[in-house]
Write a protein that binds this DNA or RNA. Structure first.
Length: 853
RNA sequence: GCCCGCUUGGCGGAACAGGUAGACGCAACGGACUUAAAAUCCGUUGACCGAAAGGUCGUCCCGGUUCGAGUCCGGGAGCGGGCACCA
């Protein structure tokens, strides 16, 4: 049986597309534009299955939209700054720039072997000065617009390596390499004022109708708008006051203590003469900066000795605790504790023996309501609250806010959880921040004519600390303002900076500007953005903010960068381990004769674990290059699209890739050795079609309609299933059936077009086999004949009391009586009804008949 | 800890707006072809009872709404993503 020669075929068609520049995009007002973008990869060195999945999905959309007549932009580039390059430099002594450029070159080759319809002429790498020079300019514009500023903020500090650690480099409170206990340290850093757009970023989520609702919800919660009140507590024996933020001012009479963050100014002050508090603050600082670490730690606190005076109860001093669970970054860094109605406050109170006063009771249990180990968070009526008693929570909030404002003891406020974006990194492999520190002039922006500030190549990454700061000469510069010796900023940008505007750069890559205004006006926003759900908040929110900031600075005119968003699931694979519990690569496993898994080398027993996200650490990875080499790109692509819907996790299995490979060959045989020779394209419809041929003819058009519908809604696995069904029918056509040749011709033409976006190389090959002298990549999507989509008779299910008892075939839109009569005549129905009285018959036309007895 | 998801046969999944649960595929089993194997083709396949006709049960668990629930509502379990310096 001849096999499809994918190696020769795939390479040949890629060369043809290349030669014809099939995927080069240019502005064209005669066709609607469509910008498809997949999240660009970090150039780690080799593509992984997650990339294969992401880029297969994007390519399907791009090729499909092209066939539908859109002017498609589909670019690719490299998110090339980042920590791994520095780690590689430290571990293997290779320069980050060299390592990155080699990785890009290797990965570009791998991506090209997948047959992706990219316009490679627009390729960008963010680590090159011709890219990052423009973001230096953007930063200067942001600075001028008041969107960038400097403030102190906390970082994880490794005292042994003298370096700032990323959260992922802090493991159980210790530095990943040194093992030293991490300290929180305060550094002066650059921030972008994302909070200036908090309200707009929140409100505009509503308009992002083609985003998954869960992503919008996650962003909504991340921005975290709350309406509450600031309350000012006078401090006993002092002139200053404690300002707290709360969303539960209704529970003010349940307040039994106040709590402040460990880095609250008052805590710092009290610590000066209190060794216990000093030690407690130090222990809080050892927790690092990650919110997860802080929130999961046991709730602890120390009494400061300060007493906050209750604003509504005379002579009611509340103890003020320094705690590890109040965050300085949120609200005012201080709260009042109401243990009755907040679980954290209750846990804390039970631990430190503070009183618990319930002030809200469920409406039906107001008498004698008490709190045990669970705070009451529900709705109810106010109790134990003097003038508030009997009110609802909402009424109490209004009342209290009004009184606070009258007394000058507080005010209603809106608060956001969202914090400004800290963009300073004490790292080498990033974009230099274009600022000079001058003793006399302060912070001086680098003049535009001196951009780009280029990263020096000659750095020593083995020294502890910030490599740019360690460089012997780079930071020495004359102040652009006064000309005296000054010092360059040695921090670089967060790498989210580069990925916040790359989609605009793709619209027009030029040496003179970040992007052309006409080009972005034409191409943006991105019509379909595709990437991992792990970027649901940070990258996508930063890009939305950046778009607003760029608009404010006159760069572009759009409101949102990504009109449609698709989030893909992870690629998973079964894990394997040997007797000693060491992970094994799938390639190290084989079957013994008895059906057990053993190691390929020594025949030792292997334990198969559950399927998890492919990761190098668990070795459950399959190398895309090996798969493409063994089965071809189309097989790999088909497997990525079959079975699992894009937003769910996908399990990589050998059986699955074999199944895809078999289907590729089956398609190949259907075209090259069809049971019925297809009539040539454009042949007239024969007068007579045999029943099976007629059914197949209808199926062709139903498939066209269904596949289009599925692709529009990203149900790619269903589209594959529909196409398989159609090919099953075409395989059943036999020589001698009336009209078989004509329908086979129509069927093969249709299948070739439908598989084009999924298996582009095979599709192009069979297209040529059909005798077409054009390229399939330039062919239009097929059109379904609407007349063939409707059936005149429909099978309707018949239930008795909701249980299926049979089916009846009825004319389409049959009236109620006809349906009812037919249903009640069914033997199965008659038997079940027996002597019972029919109480009701529900008829939903063309769907169901339910007899209620 | 907080926020957001997911859970359907042996497996991946399908079921559009609450209306025939299991499309399509994988695996398994039986058969054809073959000296044999591979490849390919045909058939069976949710569980249980039954010779069959047919029946009962069944979409993570518990409860509710409805003529009717995989789908809607309340509660719970398990698994996963994010938590601001991984990208």
């Amino acid at each position: 049986m001849p096999r499809y020669n994918f190696k020769e075929t795939e390479a040949r068609w890629r060369a043809v597309w290349d030669r014809q520049a099939s995927f080069a995009a240019s502005e064209d007002s005669s066709r609607p534009k469509y910008y498809v973008l997949e999240m660009f990869p970090y150039p780690s060195g080799r593509i992984h299955m997650g990339h294969v999945r992401n880029y297969t999905l994007g390519d399907l959309v791009a090729r499909y939209k092209r066939a539908r007549g859109f002017n498609v932009l589909h670019p690719m580039g490299w998110d090339a700054f980042g920590l791994p390059a520095e780690n590689a430099a430290k571990e293997r002594g290779v320069h980050p720039a060299e390592w990155t450029r080699e990785n890009i070159s290797a990965m570009r080759g791998q991506l090209k072997s997948m047959g992706l319809s990219y316009d490679w002429s627009r390729e960008i790498a963010t680590c090159e000065p011709q890219y990052y020079r423009f973001e230096q300019k953007m930063f200067l514009d942001f600075l001028e617009a008041g969107l960038a500023y400097r403030k102190e903020s906390w970082v994880n500090w490794d005292p042994v390596e003298n370096t700032v650690l990323a959260n992922e480099q802090v493991i159980d409170g210790r530095g990943w390499r040194s093992g030293a206990e991490v300290e929180k340290r305060q550094l002066s850093q650059w921030f972008l004022k994302i909070t200036a757009y908090a309200e707009d970023l929140l409100k505009s989520l509503e308009g992002l109708e083609r985003w998954p609702s869960r992503v919008r919800l996650m962003q909504e919660n991340w921005i975290g708008r709350s309406t509450g009140a600031q309350i000012f507590f006078n401090l006993e024996g002092r002139d200053d006051r404690l300002e707290v933020y709360t969303t539960r001012h209704d529970t003010i009479f349940g307040a039994t203590f106040c709590a402040i963050a460990a880095n609250h100014p008052l805590a710092q002050e009290v610590a000066k003469n209190n060794p216990e508090i000093t030690e407690f603050i130090a222990s809080c600082n050892r927790l690092g900066t990650s919110e997860a670490a802080i929130e999961t730690a046991e709730k602890k606190g120390v009494d400061t000795g300060l007493r906050a005076m209750h604003p509504f109860i005379a002579d009611c001093p509340l103890p003020v605790y320094v705690t590890n669970f109040v965050l300085m970054e949120y609200g005012t860094g201080a709260i009042f504790g109401c243990p009755g109605h907040d679980q954290r406050d209750l846990d804390f109170s039970l631990k430190y023996g503070l009183p618990v006063i319930p002030v809200v009771a469920p409406a039906d249990a107001a008498e004698g309501f008490t709190i045990g180990e669970e705070a009451y968070l529900g709705d109810g009526v106010m109790i134990n609250s003097r003038f508030l008693d009997g009110m609802t929570i909402a009424q109490a909030k209004e009342d209290i806010a009004g009184r606070l404002e009258k007394m000058g003891a507080g005010k209603k406020t809106v608060n956001y959880r969202l914090r400004d974006w800290g963009v300073s990194r004490q790292r080498y492999w990033g974009c230099p921040i274009p600022v000079v520190h001058c003793q006399d002039c302060g912070l001086v922006p680098v003049p535009e004519k001196d951009l780009p500030v280029v990263l020096p190549e000659d750095v020593d990454l083995d020294l502890p600390g910030n490599p740019l700061d360690n460089h012997p000469t780079w930071k020495d510069v004359d102040c652009p303002a006064c000309g005296k010796p000054a010092r360059r900023e040695t921090d670089t940008f967060d790498t989210f900076f580069e990925s916040s505007w790359y989609f605009a750069r793709f619209a027009s890559v030029s040496d003179s500007q970040a992007f052309g205004r006409e080009a972005v006006d034409y191409w943006l926003p991105v019509d379909q953005y595709i990437g991992g759900i792990e970027h649901a908040v940070l990258h996508l929110l930063y890009s939305r903010f950046f778009t607003r900031a760029l608009k404010q600075c006159g760069y572009l005119g759009i409101g949102e960068p990504f009109d449609g968003l698709m989030t893909q699931g992870m690629v998973c694979h079964q894990t394997y381990s040997d007797e000693d519990g060491n992970w094994l690569y799938p390639s190290e496993i084989t079957h013994d004769g008895k059906g057990d898994l053993v190691t390929a080398s020594g025949g030792k027993p292997v334990t198969a674990g559950r399927s998890e996200k492919m990761s190098k650490s668990k070795k459950n990875v399959v190398d895309p290059e090996a798969i493409i080499d063994a089965y071809g790109a189309d097989t790999a692509r088909l497997f990525m699209l079959s079975d699992s819907p894009p937003d769910r996790d996908l399990d990589w299995t050998d059986a699955g890739i074999d199944g895809a490979w078999r289907y590729i060959n089956r398609l190949w045989r259907l075209f090259t050795e069809p049971a019925v020779n297809p009539a040539p394209g454009g042949a007239p419809r024969p007068d007579v079609l045999s029943p099976q041929v007629e059914k197949t003819h209808r199926a062709i058009h139903k498939t066209i309609a269904a596949v289009g519908n599925d692709l529009d809604r990203f149900h790619f696995n269903k589209a594959v299933a529909r196409i398989r069904e159609l090919t099953n029918l075409l395989e059943d056509l036999k020589e001698g059936m009336d009209g078989a040749a004509w329908v086979m011709g129509e069927g093969l033409d249709t299948v070739a077009r439908l598989i084009g976006p999924m298996m582009p190389h095979l599709a192009e090959e069979v297209w040529r086999h059909l005798g077409r002298d054009t390229l399939l990549v330039d062919a239009a999507w097929p059109q379904a004949d609407a007349a063939l989509l409707v059936e005149d008779r429909i099978t309707v299910a018949v239930q008795v009391n909701g249980k299926l008892r049979g089916t009846v075939e009825l004319p389409k839109s049959a009236d109620k009586e006809t349906a009812e009569t037919a249903a009640l005549a069914l033997p199965g129905v008659v038997k079940v009804i027996g002597e019972s009285t029919i109480r009701k018959v529900i008829v939903v036309p063309d769907r169901i008949i339910n007899v209620v007895i």
